[in-house]
Structure formats: structure tokens, C-alpha cells
Design a protein around this nucleic acid. Sequence first.
RNA 1: GCCCUUGUAGCUCAGCGGUAGAGCACUUCCUUGGUAAGGAAGAGGUCACGGGUUCAAGUCCCGUCAAGGGCUCCA
Length: 605
Amino acid sequence: MEEKEEGFGRDDFASEEEYRLYCLRHSTAHVMAQAVQRLHPAARLAIGPPVQDGFYYDIEIPGVTLSEDDLPAIEAEMKKIVKENQPFELEEVDRDALRADLVGSDQPYKVEMLDGFEGKITVCRNPSKKTGETWSDMCRGPHVMRTGQCKHFKLLKIAGAYWRGDASKPQLQRLYGTVWPTSEQLQQYIFRLEEAKKRDHRKLGQQLDLFMFHDWAPGAPFWLPNGEVLYHVLADRMRRLLLDEGYVAVRTPLLFDKKLFETSGHWDHYQENLFHFADGHFHEGAEGEDHEHKIIGLKPMNCPSHMLIFGSRKRSYRELPMRIHDQGVLHRNELSGALSGLTRVRQFSQDDAHIFCAEEQIADEVEKLLELVDRVYGAFDMEVKIHLSTRPAEKLGDDELWDRAEAALEVALKRRGIDYGVKPGDGAFYGPKIDFDVFDALGRGHQCATVQLDFQLPRRFELSYVGADNALHTPVVIHRAIVGSFERFIGVLIEHYAGNFPVWLAPEQVRVMTVSEKSVPYGREVLATLQAAGLRATFDDGDEKIGYKIREGHGRKVPYMLVIGEQEAADGTVNVRSRDDDSERPTIPLAAFLERVTGEAKVPF
RNA sequence: GCCCUUGUAGCUCAGCGGUAGAGCACUUCCUUGGUAAGGAAGAGGUCACGGGUUCAAGUCCCGUCAAGGGCUCCA
């Protein structure tokens, strides 16, 4: 709990509902902490704030490590506390007396927090009539009236968390729970969690044969035939889109001499994520000064390569803005514990590009990017929220430059009529940026698109162009991506659509299935017609019954299944069964179906 | 990298000290059936890997690797 002005309460919240939920969740965190201390009197408490949909409390029990098996016992104890219906009494206390208490009861984290607080100190007391004891916790509140209100809760998980989020400090155990005003809301939330689990991209990726992983290449996805279709359709479309927008595409090396990273600054600032190693061949013959050359590394970003391209010859202002697109393969050595499905990988590629431009061109370029972001995410029915991140405390470049750059971004945002927020100080040290949060069908936010200005990299590579004034100028670089890493974006799409991809994206768009052997020849004709029209169609002519084939096709989430029997063969028709609406199953001429589905197979942006 | 959990057949999982099981998938055969599982037979596992304890180890202990939940990082 951060210290705030006294009287932290209703006025600090945007709505009554938010305030009530805050009180409820925060109070339930107290109930959980009390329960843990009843079971483990030596438990040391750290912080216990409300979070999205619930709460947590960081706890340390000397000599004891809790596991998820311990949650039921804690829940049972919490239920007792709820039943006791203890009041929450917030009370100002004497700082020194409280400090002595906390030291005496071996609560080092509370003591540390207390010492960091200024102003009045309050303690929340929970007297229990049943036990006659009073449990208390240093806290600024606010709370609900009584523990009886914290009835509809559930403990969810347990995880490690560093004290103050600092890896050099002790690791505590974080107990997560959720709590809601009514039992219905709790049930709904649990249902939502289950729904999210069902559409987990890792699960669907396996079910639909989209991608796989192997122990021998952790963090590097294998794109299976179906998943490769998704990847290819997206990557190809982004490439064409950018080419239409005046970009040029390049392909650049993966492996570089360490000198590149020293120049870009990655060697000093990003080395822990950089895969690098000694070049064995070089090493054998190397002596003395050549020693420096033997380290090579896999690029984690495309920008340095593009700097080299820009700097490879004299440039004129007439060439600007120069927009270089590169879907190069990138490697970042993420912490082993951070890897997770397609969300956090070690190898990936992006719809990456760098725009080299003059300062005066920033606003126009950014405006175009905002339009592109709109167009792409609109096609996926995803909402985008936009923030401007301004100069951080530690930055490079003079203030006038930052003034002009931030102003240029604002001009672009305003010209597009965008309702954006500002995150002061959240920019990178090398330039301000625009952050995009895209929201999927379950309302979860993801960071995919990015637009970042960079004043430093061109300087590091000593880039320049000849201006209209015949003088040398340093270009500004805009790092930008619309979908970001294809890997992560496909992961988001899988969950957004729950695997029910729109026709244009679906790996398998149409599955032709025969009722019996008699209709196989006609089925083959239908298949050939579909494939000739450029559709991704497959054929199920197996000897299973039609019900079984439909069930299979349904499981693979194929948008259209065409049932082919003797009737259809005689009439030149197909019986259409749609994934998204199987209430109607019209039998229509093949040509009519073809017309309908080729329309849907067009990329909508 | 750190803490916790997990790792048994392609998939989902059971077995938890006495020398490997189920369902689905797969293969073969029968079946040619009109809208979400037709029938039969068969094949498939050095129980992640490496040590240790024990007369005996998927089963207990230690280590490694990987996955999951978090923390951290995200020049």
C-alpha cells in the first residue's frame, strides 16, 4: 500500500462501483492474511493490495513453504473469519508504539513500510467476539464494514514474488484470490476463467495442429502446416500493405560481429538478452588483436542492420522519408522462466520497419502509421487504446529536441482525432513513443503495435543526409510495428477467435466430405474446383459415416463443410454446413457457394 | 535467473514401493451408412533425463532439462 494523503477513500475512485470493489477486495486480503496467521502465527506480512478481479497478499513464513495444496485449509479458516463477522475498525495510532509492536512481533516488512511512510499512521483492527482476540494490520484502508461481506471469495494460486519487486531482496509467497459482491458474480468470474482456459492458444495450437515446441529448442516455435498458413497469410499481407504504403523491403543478416552491437549500444545495455558466442573457426587462427573479432551474436532487433543500409552511401533529403521493412528473424535470450507459449519466445519475426526522416516529417509519418493501425485492427474487430509516452527522467538529447518531437506526435494524434492518454515519463531514453493496447474478444489488453522515435541510434551510427541547404543533417528514426511479433500476434488471434478463424485466415477453409463411396468421384471434382479457385480445401473421403466426418470437421473448426452425396452429385450442387451457423444447411449450386466463399476469403484490410 | 507446481502411449489422464493401464487418435478388416462418435482386431511406453536409497522405484530422495503459475527483465 502506497502512502497517500490521509482520508484515502471514496474521492480517490472514479466510480462508486470501483470504490466498493476496492474495499471488498482489500478487505478480503485482510481476511486471508488473518487466516494465514491463525494457521501460521509466525507469518510475516508484506503488502496486500486489490488487483484486477481480486487481490493478493505477499507473505513470508520462516521455514514454511506453502503450496496450492494449502489453499483449501486457508480458505476454510477464511470462512470461519467471515462467519465471525468481525468489524473492520480503522484507527490512528502512535507511530513509535506501533513500530515497537511490529518489531516485537517480528514483522520486518511492515516495519520497513512504516519507516517509509510520512504523516498519520492507521491500523485496521478486526476484533472477534467468538475468539475474544483482535487481529490487526497496519493499513490505510478503506474497508467494508464487516468480514461477513467478504463471503464470495476463492483462492486461486500461489506464486513467488520479490519484496518490493526487487530480485536482490527476499522472495515472498504471493497468495492470489478473487472476491465478488455476490455469489453469481463469483460464479461468472470462475466461468470466465474457464472460458479463457478453453481458448488458451497453447491448447488450441495443439488441438488444431498449428505449432509445437521441443525441448531441444526452448522458446522457438515449430510452425506446423496449419499454423504456417496463418503465419504466411499475415506476414504476406503485412508486407504487401507496407509496400503499397511506400515502404521498401529488405532482408538482412542474422549473425553479426560484436562490433555492431557495440555501436548500437546493445552490447552494453542489452547483453543479457543477446545470444553471442565465439566464432570457432576464427578463434583457431586468431592471435593478439584479432581476439576482439571472435565474438559474434544473433541480432535481437533489425534496427542496426537498417542503420548500416542507410549509412552505406551518401543520402539526400530527397530520399526521405526512407521506410525500410524487414521481417528478419530475431533472437532474444529471454530468461528461461519467462518463456510462455507464443506470448514470450526466443525466436520470432515482426512486421518491423524503420522510417528514416527529417524532423519536419515526423508528424506526417506518424499520422500515416495511426491510420494503418486503425485499418489493421479494425479488420480484426479489436479495440485499440492509445497513449503518448513522454520524456523520462533519464534521457539523452536536449529538451528542445524533445519538445519538438513530443509536439509532432501530439499533432499527429490530434489530426487523427484520437482520444489518447498521456504517460508522463514513460518514453524510452532515446525518444518519446506512442503505445497501443489492443483488446481481444475477452477484453484482455495486449501490447502489439508500437511507434517510437529515436534520436540516438542515427548518431551512434553517424548517419547523415544532405539537406536542401547542402548541409549535413542527422535523420530521425521511427521504429514501428503494427502487429509486432507475428508469433505473439497469432497467439492473441487464436484466443481472440477461440480458434474459429475468419475464412480469409483459416488454414482449412472448406472440407469436402462424402456420404458414401458412390459420391467420391463428384467430391473430387468439387475439391478440384475449389482448389482451382485458390481456396484451401481438403477432402474427407474416408469410410466413416457422415456424422463422424462432421464431428471431425467441427473439431478442427473448419468454416465450411460440404456434404456430398448422390443427390448433390446428380444435381451439381453442394450441401453447405457452416461452422458459425449450422441452423441452415442449404443445398446450393457449387458455383453459388464458390462465389460466396471467395468473397469471404479476401483479406479485409 | 529466482520461488512454487508439473513431466506415464500422438492427445487427455489413472496408477504413488512389488516388475505398466483407460478413453480418444493410429493400423488392418468388416461396414457404404444423409448431418456432432458403426463394429472387430491390432500395434504403440527404457513411466523427461542422470544419479541415489531399497531385496525391489513411474512410485521415495538429489540433480539436470522442459512446461505451467508468478516475480524480474523488456536497450
